[in-house]
Nucleic acid binder design. Sequence first.
DNA 1: AGCCAGGCTACCG
DNA 2: CGGTAGCATGGC
Length: 213
Amino acid sequence: MHMQTLFKMLLKNHHPQGWWPIAGKYHPRDYSCPRNQQQREEIIIGAILTQNTSWKNVEKALEQLRKNKLLSFSALLKCPKSTLATCIRSSGYFNQKAIKLKEIASFFKRNPYFRMLSLEKQREKLLHVHGIGPETADSILLYAFRRPIFVVDAYTKRLFALHGFKEKTYDEIQQRCMRELPHDFKVYNEFHALIVAWGKTQRLNNRKGRKRV
DNA sequence: AGCCAGGCTACCG
DNA sequence: CGGTAGCATGGC
């Protein structure tokens, strides 16, 4: 099956998702976010907090950060690690994530001209930051910087396997998606978000259908 | 009561 | 290279 077909099937079964959520709000068909540096930082912080964690738990952590005026890189850098860990408790792995948040904040402080770099260079530099792997790096590039790069996650791998595609690894799947879809950040934005929407319903269905004693 | 979430690092064979 | 323990909370 062609990737376009898969995309259209997802669009038929789900509404446009309006990623990345800002302050808990989705904005379907509006791809103009982030509108400012503060929103960009919120996206990046969320991208780290959501590593192997449900978005519900991340939202609570983001609210705590917002309430404590910690939802920005400059504030994160000044904040004691233990305070930070307490705020993001609900997102799990809070000690690790407290370190990661400080790492990424420090990275962007040391790289004020990040936006001027080529996409390849940006990705390479992000991957060298402790706590930033391929999915988080690509999420940051796609959703915080509107760069045309496709994000692969656990759901994407499941979807590919389900359709019998031969691509297995992160890079293989990413390359195929980018080869077969327009090189447009809006397309990659919606496609990834739709796959997550699909993945969530998939999980719900599995639960309902599960045999219980 | 488990299993799992919008992963990553470190370490193993 | 591929595989996996550890990290940790909260929803269902």
